[in-house]
Amino acid sequence: MPSIPQPLLPDDDGSAAPAVAAALRAFHAGTAGPADVLNALTGARVLVPVVALLTESEVGEHGLRQEKESEMALPKLVGKDGREAVLAFTSAESLARWRPDARPIQASALQVCQAAVGERAAAVVLDVAGPHSFVIEGAALTAMAAVASGSLPDSDDAITVTRLEEPAPQRRRFPWSRRR
Rank of each mutant, 00 (worst) to 15 (best):
M1K: 14
M1Y: 08
P2G: 07
P2M: 09
P2R: 13
Q6G: 11
P7Q: 05
L8Y: 12
P10Y: 08
P10R: 06
D11C: 05
D12Q: 03
D12Y: 15
G14Q: 00
S15R: 15
A17N: 13
P18S: 14
V20A: 03
A22N: 10
A22C: 09
L24F: 05
L24P: 03
R25A: 15
R25P: 12
A29V: 12
G30Q: 12
G30T: 01
T31R: 02
T31N: 00
A32Q: 10
G33H: 06
G33Y: 08
P34A: 12
D36H: 13
V37R: 01
N39T: 15
N39A: 13
N39G: 14
A40V: 01
A40K: 02
L41R: 07
L41V: 02
A44V: 04
R45D: 03
R45S: 07
L47I: 05
P49G: 04
P49I: 02
V51E: 11
L53I: 12
L54D: 09
L54H: 07
L54E: 15
T55N: 14
S57V: 08
S57Q: 08
E58R: 05
G60I: 01
G60V: 06
E61M: 11
E61I: 06
H62L: 07
G63Y: 09
R65Y: 05
R65H: 07
R65A: 11
Q66T: 09
Q66R: 13
E71S: 08
L77K: 04
K80C: 10
D81F: 11
R83V: 05
L87Y: 02
L87S: 13
A88I: 03
F89S: 00
F89V: 08
F89A: 03
T90F: 14
A92P: 00
E93K: 08
S94F: 04
S94A: 06
R97D: 06
R97C: 11
R99D: 06
R99M: 04
R99V: 10
D101A: 15
A102I: 07
R103N: 06
I105D: 00
Q106A: 00
Q106S: 09
Q106E: 11
Q106W: 00
L110Q: 08
V112K: 00
C113I: 01
Q114R: 05
A115N: 01
A115M: 03
V117Y: 01
G118L: 01
E119D: 14
A121C: 15
L126M: 08
A129Q: 03
A129R: 09
G130H: 03
G130S: 03
F134M: 05
I136R: 01
E137R: 11
G138K: 07
G138F: 08
A140L: 06
L141W: 02
A143G: 03
M144F: 04
M144R: 01
S151D: 15
P153W: 04
D156R: 13
D157R: 03
I159W: 10
V161Y: 02
T162Q: 09
T162H: 06
L164R: 07
L164F: 12
E166W: 04
A168K: 03
R171F: 14
R171V: 15
R171N: 09
R173Q: 14
R173W: 13
P175R: 05
P175T: 14
S177A: 05
S177M: 11
R178H: 15
